[in-house]
């Protein structure tokens, strides 16, 4: 299974936010989108999910996907974790299968949703209100909702932003296992380069809305690339055998001008 993106472009008004982005993401792989704030990571994910008007093309296994067709195959989890709703946790997860919900919700579907919550250690929260649990727990609930959709493509915007260290590791490990076991295409925006290097099969670096580098961690996380993308000097070292670790040293006097 492959998701091919051809010359994707997104503009807010007259300002181009994503510029002719082209890449191919494969099933079973975990892709991490990296880049500084405002690089266009979230916009790219939204456009791929069909939630923003965009130029260019997106195809899944060779078949073109119109924006209005993507919802059925592509699940997207937004970044924000705030909630003012008093819906229960289980109801939020059930909403992930919106198209399967009717006046009667099949017992099997409820059991499956409870199972999905259980897998993320959240079953005990199922009757709690979504606005009464912590931001990290909410993020896990929305992640459960996205996974519960059983999509072919899963796009996650900062899925670990509100999580503690242990949950960051567990969630990323779970996503990597999910991709490997189901062949799901998973792409996520991540700020933590070390987590990206540890868990992602492939890194895609965005700068000013354009693809700046793509490949395995050791190909993307190089000193020159980090200076170019983030405007930082950093040491990239190998720890625990093979894993890369980025050690930021200092911010450059002037951030590289956008191309």
């Amino acid at each position: 299974m492959t998701l091919r993106i051809d010359a994707l472009g997104v503009c807010y008004g007259a300002s181009p936010i994503i510029r002719h982005f082209s890449d191919t993401w494969r099933g079973g792989e975990l892709t991490a989108l990296i880049g500084c704030n405002g690089a266009g990571k979230s916009t790219l994910l939204k456009a791929l999910a069909g939630l923003l008007p965009a130029s260019g093309g997106v195809s899944l296994d060779g078949a073109g996907l119109r924006a209005d067709e993507r919802g059925a195959r592509i699940a997207y989890m937004p970044q924000e974790t705030g909630a003012t709703s008093s819906l229960t946790v289980l109801e939020v997860v059930l909403l992930g299968r919106l198209r399967s919900l009717g006046m009667r919700v099949p017992a099997g579907l409820i059991a499956e949703a409870v199972g999905a919550l259980d897998a993320f250690g959240l079953a005990a929260l199922q009757t709690r209100r979504i606005d009464e649990i912590s931001g990290g727990q909410r993020q896990l609930v929305f992640l459960t909702q996205a996974v519960f959709r059983a999509p072919r493509v899963l796009l996650l915007d900062e899925p670990t932003a509100a999580l503690d260290l242990r949950h960051q590791l567990l969630v990323l490990e779970s996503l990597r296992n999910l991709a490997a076991s189901t062949g799901t295409i998973i792409a996520m925006a991540l700020h933590d380069l070390n987590l990206a290097a540890q868990f992602a099969d492939r890194l895609v670096a965005l700068h000013d809305g354009a693809l700046r580098a793509a490949g395995r961690a050791e190909e993307v996380l190089t000193g020159p690339n980090l200076m170019d993308i983030y405007g930082i000097e950093a040491d990239v070292v190998r720890v625990a055998g093979a894993r890369l670790q980025v050690m930021p040293l200092r911010a450059a006097e002037r951030v590289a001008a956008p191309s």
């Binding site: 499956e112 199972g115 999905a116 259980d118 897998a119 993320f120 250690g121 896990l140 459960t144 996974v147 519960f148 059983a150 242990r166 949950h167 567990l170 969630v171 490990e173 779970s174 996503l175 990597r176 296992n177 999910l178 490997a180 076991s181």
Partner: peptide, 14 residues
């Protein structure tokens, strides 16, 4: 978080 998540049983756990 239960042990299931680490085993990758995100969706189909009992």
């Amino acid at each position: 978080m239960s042990h299931d998540i680490a085993k990758g049983g995100a969706v189909s756990a009992a």
